[in-house]
Design a protein around this nucleic acid. Structure first.
Length: 306
DNA sequence: GTTGAGCGTT
């Protein structure tokens, strides 16, 4: 038997593509799938009825009357009830809320990103004063993606939306990379813009004062992992990317005493001036909440900056 | 000058 060409289309209405048979007169399913990805068989119309082609060992057999008597189109697997289980929304933490901002304002702000299932502003149990952070949950994952993809100006302050620690099985470690050999002119915005080409960036951390490294967190852990070990040139600077090791798992003591900035540091005096010596970048590492806008309950002196 | 701020009374 010689090779002949069989007209096959994706659906009954579409334009056919002619596919070659094998020497034995069969048509390989792989030949069909090469043109129609995911096809699982072929069917045709015989009289008024639909008929399916016999398929054995990946070979489609012609109908008794031969290939030329019909034209054929593809059968596809019945789409499973949940073809691609969409990622589910998680609670999101909103950091850096102004003290005055309550649930209503948070809800009103984030409603622009999508329907909200939950809004919380965390408050001190005794005083009822805001702790400066809260939690939200969207109904749609797309809304969550939109909110994670940028920073947020709420009641006059830049706020960050992140996937909370502890949820997500602590997977944030796998979503984050350490960017070494940074120079001082590499801003958080530069990094976000550069790394966005590899996948959605959910967080950029650039220590202040300058420390020659940064952290970039991606939505997809595979993106983060794929970058590890590489050198990249950003704005002419060759940076090195490696895994972000958990905060505490690194030895050495040194300047570790100043971990708890914030209220306590204010009264520490000496080093404070340097600590608050940030520059106004586009992706500002905002001044510590308490120093920039003292909590109304704070009656202690705090360090002002200009 | 290569490892980070802050994380939920249920």
């Amino acid at each position: 038997m010689s090779i002949e060409y069989v007209p096959v289309s994706e659906g009954e209405q579409e334009e056919p593509i002619e596919l070659p048979t094998e020497e034995d007169g069969s048509l390989l399913l792989s030949t069909v799938a090469a043109q129609f990805a995911g096809a699982s068989g072929l069917k045709y119309r015989a009289g008024g009825r639909l008929r399916g082609l016999r398929l054995v060992d990946e070979r489609l057999s012609p109908p008794a009357e031969g290939w030329a008597a019909h034209r054929y189109w593809c059968a596809f697997p019945r789409s499973s009830p949940s073809p691609t289980p969409r990622p589910r929304c998680s609670d999101l933490i909103v950091l850096g809320l102004p003290w005055k901002t309550g649930e209503d304002a948070v809800r009103e702000y984030f409603a622009a990103f999508g329907d909200l299932l939950m809004v919380q502003v965390k408050r001190d149990a005794k005083t009822g004063l805001s702790k400066g952070f809260g939690f939200i949950k969207f109904a749609e994952y797309e809304a969550q993606l939109r909110a994670l993809g940028r920073r947020h100006m709420i009641d006059g302050r830049w706020c960050d939306v992140r996937i909370p620690n502890g949820k997500d099985g602590g997977a944030s470690a796998h979503r984050k990379v350490f960017v070494g050999r940074c120079t001082e002119n590499l801003t958080a915005e530069d990094l976000r813009e550069y790394f966005a080409a590899f996948g959605q960036v959910t967080d950029v951390f650039v220590p202040r004062p300058f420390r020659a490294f940064s952290f970039v967190t991606f939505l997809d852990p595979e993106v983060a992992q794929s970058l590890c070990g590489q050198d990249h040139i950003i704005k002419g600077v060759s940076v090195n990317i490696s895994t972000a090791s958990p905060k505490r798992e690194r030895g050495g003591g040194g300047a570790r005493g100043s971990q708890l900035l914030g209220w306590g540091l204010v009264e520490a005096g000496g080093g404070a001036a340097r600590v608050f010596n940030w520059a106004g970048d586009a992706w500002p590492q905002q001044p510590p909440h308490s120093a920039a806008t003292p909590h109304p309950a704070l009656d202690k002196p705090y360090l002002k900056y200009e």
